[in-house]
């Protein structure tokens, strides 16, 4: 009995190990795309288009805050493409010498919105000063110290002169989707996310849209980075992301798509 168990266990370990080694060489080519969390759903659409065009090349996505992704790229050079929610994180990657080919400036833009749980009785606000009210003890933001969505939100609140009053109420999330989830679960009474994040969720409601001219200018950046995929392939994926059909995908998700490149 014991012998049999031991043998089975060893066989299992060995077969898993073999599986691991074989899966390493499995797909002939893959391109690692490190993308800001806010781009998650739109990237899914763009990947769908890519699969129709080049099914033999797999796009592997790593979603997270642009700050985390920039650090990962700096530490590992594992990314072939970097889609950042701001130019500051792209700048970090540039300084580390990892950029192979940069996409056009002002590739995509976005808008900040204030959201509440869908179950809330809140009606649309006429002014953002409602945020200061005591009925909102917890404010969900992406971490304003590092994550672009949080930094943009902080910049807006500072411009409104309400940051110092609200700072102690901030519940920081690891990325903008974490902030969204905090409001979805009603763990926070209110949150500030991108309008594109609010659009994918049935469980939050937008009560205030930050007018584009009042908010900080939100600029996404895109670049091919020196990763493990062949450079021409990475460039091809970059071009795919900049192509007209891909821009339609982003526009459909609510992104403000920049002028042609």
């Amino acid at each position: 009995m014991l012998e049999r168990f031991l043998r089975a266990a060893v066989a299992l370990c060995l077969s898993l190990f073999a599986l691991a080694c074989s899966s390493e060489k499995g797909p002939p080519a893959s391109v690692q795309v490190f993308a800001a969390a806010s781009l998650r759903d739109a990237c899914g659409d763009v990947a769908e288009l890519w699969r129709e065009r080049r099914p033999e090349v797999e796009l592997v996505f790593n979603f997270g805050s642009s700050a985390t992704l920039a650090q990962q790229i700096e530490a590992t050079r594992a990314a072939d493409l970097f889609l950042s929610a701001d130019t500051a994180q792209m700048e970090l990657v540039r300084k580390s010498g990892a950029i192979a080919l940069e996409g056009p400036a002002r590739w995509l833009s976005n808008q900040l919105v204030v959201v509440v749980p869908a179950s809330s009785s809140e009606v649309e606000w006429s002014a953002p000063s409602e945020l200061l009210h005591a009925r909102f003890p917890r404010l969900a933001l992406a971490n304003p110290a590092s994550v672009p969505a949080g930094k943009y939100a902080k910049a807006w609140l500072e411009a409104q002169g309400s940051w110092s009053a609200l700072e102690s109420r901030v519940v920081p999330g690891v990325d903008v989707r974490a902030a969204l989830a905090a409001v979805e679960n009603a763990a926070c009474e209110v949150g500030i996310v991108y309008s594109t994040d609010a659009a994918i969720s049935q469980r939050v409601r937008v009560v205030y849209r930050v007018p584009l001219e009042q908010g900080p200018r939100i600029e996404y950046a895109i670049a091919a980075t020196s990763g493990k995929a062949p450079a021409p392939l990475a460039r091809e994926v970059l071009e795919h992301f900049l192509s007209a059909p891909a821009r339609v995908c982003f526009a459909r998700r609510g992104f403000l798509v920049g002028e042609g490149h």
Partner: peptide, 18 residues
């Protein structure tokens, strides 16, 4: 996802995106 996401990290990810 599909590369380094385990059950444990997958739960965290699923929570993050609701």
């Amino acid at each position: 996802p599909g590369r380094t996401q385990t059950l444990a990290t997958g739960i965290f990810d699923a929570l993050q995106v609701g």
